[in-house]
Nucleic acid binder design. Structure first.
Lengths: 163, 163
DNA sequence: GGCGATTGGATGACATGTCAACCAAGACGC
DNA sequence: GCGTCTTGGTTGACATGTCATCCAATCGCC
């Protein structure tokens, strides 16, 4: 790795700022979330994704893909959430191997109780500190990066010829 | 929480993009780092922060503060890194309670071997996908957010009258 | 319709992170 | 100097995440 292009001052500032912001924002959002709603960020994400579907139900693997989680992680996490009464598992009619994750009424209550406060926190500590142009730019470049990264990865449900 | 201002389309796009980018970028950077250098991201961060000091040595608490880690987390992690020979602990001359974390030659080698590849990956999957104006904007708003978040938190080394 | 390959999901062992004690040493008031 | 309060760091118990493995059900192909 001889001809490495190191980061210039501007890039270094951006990269460090990004990472520090991430960390602080995570800490703060997680703190408020547990305090106000008794949920962790992963909890919130699961409930949020579920609640965005019409019936509050999703195949486990579908949910895992949306969240970019491994099936294993999700399965473990669901077991814990299930014990708290936030979700349940149902059998899948069309594929007997499959599991359907279902939002319980308690889970629905939990996310509805948490959502407003969480969005407010996201605004207060992040979005509202940005100018409209910055928000626009953020949307633009994050999606560009996502598209780029989504390519290398997961050559769609296909033969595993990669790498 | 009646009058919640929910996210408009632009904000929602930015927020989702941000979170998805984070996740994908983490996965990819961590993947390359372990593969090419046998280090996790936390490992890399510890080594990187240490190597930025003139002597490759830092008080444990100072390092923890820089990284925004709890002392406990750092202590555990150092124990593991120490077992791999990447760092050592020394007694602190001016404060007998204190511990000084020291980069070993092997640790120095490890970070030097990893750095170029990591920076290249950061460029390839992130910075180089942004226009100079976007990099500039990223540096600007992340630091703004960091400053904001740093305020609520940690009322400096002072009496603990908070909250 | 039967057999090997793949897939969906669960599980156990292990790595990592958090939280709440704990302990020794410094700081401070007297 | 000596109680008491705080601080720096470690530790153990526990929560969470990862990885490899396993099993049953589906798929493909004949």
């Amino acid at each position: 790795m001889e001809g490495t292009r190191w980061l210039d001052e501007r890039e270094d500032r951006a990269w460090r700022g990004y990472r520090r912001m991430r960390r602080l924002l995570d800490l703060e959002l997680a703190r408020e979330l547990t305090q106000d709603a008794g949920l962790s960020e992963p909890d919130y994400d699961v409930l949020s994704d579920l609640s965005e579907t019409p019936q509050g139900r999703l195949r486990l693997s579908e949910l895992a893909d949306r969240m970019l989680w491994s099936r294993s992680r999700l399965s473990h996490h669901l077991t814990r959430m299930q014990q708290r009464g936030l979700v349940t598992r149902e059998e899948c009619p069309d594929d007997a191997r499959g599991a359907i994750v279902v939002l319980t009424p308690a889970g629905r209550d939990a996310i509805e109780a948490a959502a407003a406060g969480h969005v407010t926190a996201v605004r207060q500590h992040f979005l509202d500190l940005l100018t409209p142009a910055e928000v626009e730019a953020l949307g633009a470049f994050t999606h560009r990066v996502v598209d780029h990264l989504a390519q290398n990865r997961a050559p769609r449900p296909r033969r595993g010829t990669e790498a």
